[in-house]
């Protein structure tokens, strides 16, 4: 079951961690489909571009078709600039 971790606005919507019920590998795109619309809108732009940085086991995700294994940790990191 992959673990999803969130910060910022996404954390407010989904909590800081979410364990997905998926015993077999699924794609990142399939994971996003399981999230509520409000969260998806923060993650994906209308043109399909990622609005946030997605890290799979701390490595940048290789696109929405990347297969996520049950043991993976996926972090969703918004782009911020800090002042």
């Amino acid at each position: 079951m992959p673990r999803l971790r969130f910060i910022g606005r996404l954390r407010e919507i989904l909590g800081s961690e979410l364990e997905l019920e998926a015993s077999s590998p699924i794609t990142l795109s399939q994971i996003l489909e399981k999230l509520p619309q409000e969260a998806r809108r923060l993650i994906l732009a209308e043109d399909g571009r990622l609005r946030v940085i997605v890290l799979v086991n701390e490595k940048p995700a290789q696109g929405l078709s990347q297969v996520i294994k049950p043991s993976d940790v996926v972090r969703f990191v918004p782009i911020v600039s800090g002042g």
Binding site: G8, R11, E12, V77, S81, G82, G83
Partner: peptide, 21 residues
């Protein structure tokens, strides 16, 4: 999509961000 959150926290959201990273 992030407008409301930005207006509420502004750059202060970065404390959590920096900690996580």
């Amino acid at each position: 999509a992030n407008y409301d959150f930005w207006v509420r926290q502004g750059t202060m959201a970065t404390i959590e961000w920096s900690q996580e990273n």
